[in-house]
Amino acid sequence: MIEKKDSLAIGEYIKNFARKHSLFVLAYGTGCGAIEIPPTMTSRYDAERFGIRGAATPRQADVLLITGYLATKTLKRVIRVYEQMQDPKYVIGFGSCTINGGMYWDSYNTINSLDKYIPVDVFINGCMPRPEAVISGFVKLQEYIQEGKADGWRKYQNNIEEYRENQKRIIKNWRMPDYNL
């Protein structure tokens, strides 16, 4: 990218470098996978050496970490949180449940594929993924950010109607603020 000698490309390269090395993570920890987040963040696996640190609120966060299954009730909150985050924002689906439902695939009140409702940049499979797997997922996200491939937020903006249709199929009583781009 930097070989192009294009000033905009160089600016984008520097921005992506900063975004890659500074990921503020908002862990949406209602699933069972949340138990793997404390060891990832604390002394043993120490995710802070990659510039990954926890964010307190959605407004400050860059990465939304969905740890495990999502009930149809919590999906609404996840969408609300995702839309409150500031662009560029990334989503990591954590565990098998976010990929295909995992052990809850025929449950009556969980969603199966998270990617239909909000755009997911990186999936980490496993039930549960160990902290090594979580860190390797973050490193993969960093690679995508540097290459400019982690553009789920742009995909969400462009295909908002399609995503809304899928979301409203699950959430019957839709009373949410509009997503202003």
């Binding site: 921005k15 900063a18 500074s22 860059d62 662009d87 560029p88 781009l181």
Partner: peptide
């Protein structure tokens, strides 16, 4: 890096 990333956020 944190400050540079925060300044290169695209929405407000």
């Amino acid at each position: 890096l944190d400050v540079l990333k925060l300044y290169s956020k695209e929405s407000a």
